[in-house]
């Protein structure tokens, strides 16, 4: 008998879960297929893990894809040093709980040249700490494939991206010369130094992500749920006011209110929304009537139309 693992060991304890509907099941199947394909075809994959809801779903799918084995690649968190503190605490818990290989990278220029979102502005800060930081980490690890949790419904240039997104040795994306990608047959052939960004969540929408989190009971950073929190209003965004590095400008006062985040990143660049949704059902209910997109809360995406494409050409994931 080659399979002597007792039946009970193969059972996940949470079998009382509601089964996935065919829509989510199809998305899950596709994502697992992509994970397995990349893991089998590339020498050294890595998974970009940003601690947000999409990353949480991505990690869950990776665990499913390789079960009963371990996730066969490390997670990489490109930190900027300006994440919400709850994100870091949550991240450390998850890495321990699921026995994951984990790499954290912070661009040393951040500390050396004192690069902050306040002194350098959101665009330059993101460029240095995220894009450049990511390039450094990928080069240092010699990774030839990097999983990302990007979705095509997030932004117009994302909507154009392949599931296997080819990158030059300089990590550049050339949107005008993408390889055709037919059926679910992915072309993973690359030369040394080139790499591929793989996006298992390409076809998921924001609603799909939330519903999947609900059915699969995936743990999330509590910032996604509404709570009384201190905040200030700046440039039309509600910025969480709990980090001592946030200095109040003249006229700004700390307010308190029930707020939550639709997307998580660097706290000075990520806006909250007023909300009373303290659990998943309520978050989904609010989402149904939302009249603005989730990207609205992100300073870096609001700069101009086409700013995402520009960042991606330079190596942003």
């Amino acid at each position: 008998m080659p399979s002597t693992l007792p039946e009970t060991e193969l059972h996940n304890p949470q079998t009382t879960k509601t089964p996935l509907d065919p829509h989510l099941k199809a998305l899950e199947n596709e994502a697992i297929h992509i994970f397995r394909e990349v893991a089998a075809e590339f020498d050294k994959p890595v998974m970009l893990y940003s601690v947000g809801k999409d990353s949480s779903v991505l990690l869950h799918l990776a665990r499913k894809a390789f079960y009963p084995g371990r996730v066969p690649f490390p997670l990489l968190h490109v930190n900027t040093g300006w994440k919400f503190s709850e994100m870091i605490a949550f991240r450390n818990d998850i890495v321990k709980k699921y026995d994951l290989d984990f790499i954290e990278h912070i661009n040393p220029r951040g500390a050396a040249e004192n690069v902050t979102p306040f002194t350098h502005g959101s665009a330059l800060f993101t460029d240095i700490m995220k894009t450049e930081g990511l390039r450094q980490a990928l080069d240092a690890g010699g990774f030839d494939a990097a999983f990302g949790g990007a979705r095509r419904d997030e932004e117009a240039s994302r909507a154009k991206e392949r599931i296997y997104s080819f990158r030059t040795p300089e990590h550049r994306w050339d949107p005008r010369a993408q390889r055709p990608e037919l059926w679910n047959i992915y072309n993973g052939m690359i030369r040394k130094g080139e790499s591929v960004r793989a996006f298992p969540l390409s076809n998921w929408t924001e609603v799909d992500i939330w519903r999947y989190i609900q059915v699969e009971e995936i743990p999330l950073v509590p910032l996604y749920y509404a709570k009384e929190r201190p905040y200030i209003e700046r440039d039309g965004m509600m910025i969480l006011a709990e980090d001592p590095r946030l200095e109040l400008l003249p006229g700004e006062t700390v307010k308190h209110g029930s707020i939550r985040f639709r997307t998580l990143g660097d706290f000075p660049l990520t806006g909250a929304i007023p909300s009373v949704a303290t659990n998943l059902e309520e978050v989904i209910a609010e989402l149904e009537i939302a009249t603005v997109s989730e990207r609205q809360g992100r300073a870096i995406d609001r700069d101009q139309s086409g700013s995402m494409e520009k960042k991606k050409r330079e190596g942003y994931f």
């Binding site: 117009a156 909507a159 154009k160 949107p175």
Partner: peptide, 18 residues
């Protein structure tokens, strides 16, 4: 959504929408 597409007023690559 691509700059080149907007400049030329044509579609170059396939866009997926939901």
């Amino acid at each position: 959504g691509l700059q080149a597409e907007r400049e030329q007023g044509i579609t170059i690559d396939v866009a997926y929408r939901y």
